[in-house]
Design a protein around this nucleic acid. Structure first.
Lengths: 229, 229
DNA sequence: GTTTTTTCGATAGCAAAACTATCATGTTTT
DNA sequence: AAAACATGATAGTTTTGCTATCGAAAAAAC
């Protein structure tokens, strides 16, 4: 399967479009790899500059700071996810089937889809797992939100909530269930890798078990609100 | 209700026991307030030292760094939670009733219980909401875990998982459900405050709705595994 | 009740992080 | 050919994160 992207991250996210120059693309591609390797806290523009043989100041011409850079990467992640959802559900009619497919997508079961972004999907998934909450768990969250920079995540969450409502119209917590599922699709594999006492999912990409957990969670809750089920 | 604590945070967490001196207690109490006010990222030992009129070096004699300090605060939070759970469930027999009570506790419905720790429970809850994941979403997670410093959280999670298993012995994801519930009891109110599109919970401490969401989530999933329910 | 240890204040200093500024040079655009 | 723009190169600022040293005061041990 092949995805073609017209969707681009919000312009306010970067000072100039990194996709418009060699240096910009290099910053994003290599920055993604470096952050994946050393983690958000240890990642600095200076280290990245050394790695790709440019200057710190040049990177600052593209991104205000590393928080914006992380947000830029996650925006790609969320856009890819939502796009994958749209394309995958296009030919499906059964609401239950749609939800099962979507769970496979957020559980990273579609990561081999080629998306032509040139971004390392494995690194992107790793960053989404370990760093994504750092993007909104900050004191400046309201200002960032006012700039619409969380829109991709909110759209994705809203779309999934819509699918839940379609399946179980009476359920009153579709948005909360959607964010719960999204967050847990990241956190449970992280726990599996590092804090196994907090999960029943197995190490090393035990996606089938993650999928079973999420499916059971979502359908138990939604079926409970379908009369006669 | 009144809680008396014999439980103390792991000794390895602090370089010396902050509860053993005036300065130590001041660091913890005021540090908690300051971090709650300005957030983990903006919090520094230098700022705290100025605020409580001591020296940066003196604070470093108690805590290695601010990450350990945060972990120390969260350890109190987890200990208080688990202790509250133990005491509240002591006289309950019905597993369903136990789970309902426990959900009220993690949803911060018992925050008026006096615990004699002298810690501001409101600030502690705020920090647990906004900062708790920063304590394990780091590259050094495995080393910290090897020092047993996440034990209080894992114990709490394990205890809750035990209650789930008692209610629905066949359910295979009790730990994952437990961590899901714990994480969401923090994250959903945070979303309600700052990113309302991601939740159905209302602003301003709408605990009743949070409790309804969590109860519905947990019981839907567990009841699904009880034959005949 | 005075040694001895511990604690804290006070000051200093350092390396890294997180930027900002300036200017020259090369490269596109018009 | 001129104007506009992107990058390199260099420098400098403030804040953070942390360590070292030393003397005075307070607490503990003898």
């Amino acid at each position: 399967m092949n995805l073609r992207f017209t969707i681009r991250p919000n312009e306010k996210l970067a000072l100039r479009d990194p996709e418009s120059s060699d240096l910009g693309r290099k910053i994003v591609r290599q920055g993604l790899m470096l952050m994946h390797k050393i983690g958000y806290e240890h990642f600095t523009f200076r280290k990245l500059a050394t790695e790709i043989d440019t200057k710190e100041a040049s990177i600052y011409r593209y991104f205000e700071n590393k928080h914006r850079f992380l947000l830029y990467l996650l925006t790609w992640h969320w856009n890819i996810l939502e796009y994958t959802v749209i394309v995958s559900l296009r030919n499906l009619d059964d609401p239950a089937e749609k939800i099962r497919t979507l769970i496979r997508i957020v559980a990273n079961d579609f990561s081999d889809w080629d998306d032509e972004t040139g971004l390392d999907r494995n690194a992107l998934h790793g960053i989404a797992m370990a760093e994504s909450s750092k993007v909104y768990l900050i004191k400046e969250v309201d200002e960032v939100n006012r700039e619409q920079l969380f829109k991709p995540y909110k759209d994705l969450c809203g779309r999934i909530a819509g699918l839940f409502s379609e399946y179980a119209p009476g359920y009153p917590f579709s948005r909360s269930l959607s964010s719960t599922m999204l967050e847990m699709s990241q956190l449970q594999p992280y726990f599996a890798q590092h804090l196994p006492a907090l999960t029943d999912i197995g190490k090393d990409g035990d996606y089938e078990k993650l999928i079973r957990f999420l499916e059971n969670l979502v359908f138990s809750v939604l079926d409970n609100h379908i009369p006669g089920k």
